[in-house]
Design a protein around this nucleic acid. Structure first.
Lengths: 83, 83
DNA sequence: ACGATCTATAGCTTATGCGCTATAAATTTA
DNA sequence: TAAATTTATAGCGCATAAGCTATAGATCGT
């Protein structure tokens, strides 16, 4: 499971996976936090133009949190799959 | 130096701290990745309107990466930081 | 194949980001 | 405290996000 994101595309993939993991569709997810379905779609496709406010609302809907840390040279996909 | 962010304000604080830790000012940081100083300022102040593309460029300038993970059950106000 | 559900795309409108430049506060340093 | 540096704010022009609605395309189940 990809957790690390260094680009909007990465992030979009992470969000999509998390959403499916929760059994939600784009419409339902967006409704939880006031984002319309087309916007959820664009974020998941990796739109770098997406705004931070939109991202954090999405994270809230999916019960996710963001961690900022120094870039690791060695890749980080440790941690037994928790989701 | 691992910091969680659940809002644009959180994130802005994290970025500002990381920048200072690297001994950079807003102008120098922005120049590394083609962002102007006023924009860096707004991001650090927590503008939810900041775009993801801008954020990722800033992360690159500061040699940071983003990790998305399930929200910790233990409250986010638990590691000594004030937000 | 069919219908139902889900996702992607499009047009319109309003709002706002960002680069650029200039300048005003605020902070640091001597 | 004055000067230098750094950060915040503002206006302009251009580009684009996001909400809304509609619909086309894709996917799933029967």
């Amino acid at each position: 499971m990809i957790r690390k994101a260094i680009s909007p595309e990465n992030l979009g993939s992470v969000l999509r996976e998390a959403r499916k993991q929760k059994g939600l569709n784009q419409t339902a997810t967006g409704k939880l936090v006031g984002i319309d379905q087309p916007t959820v779609s664009k974020v998941e496709q990796g739109s770098g133009g997406t705004q931070l406010g939109t991202l954090f609302r999405l994270l809230a809907a999916l019960e996710l949190e963001m961690v900022i840390q120094p870039r690791s040279k060695t890749d980080v996909k440790n941690d037994g799959d928790k989701w």
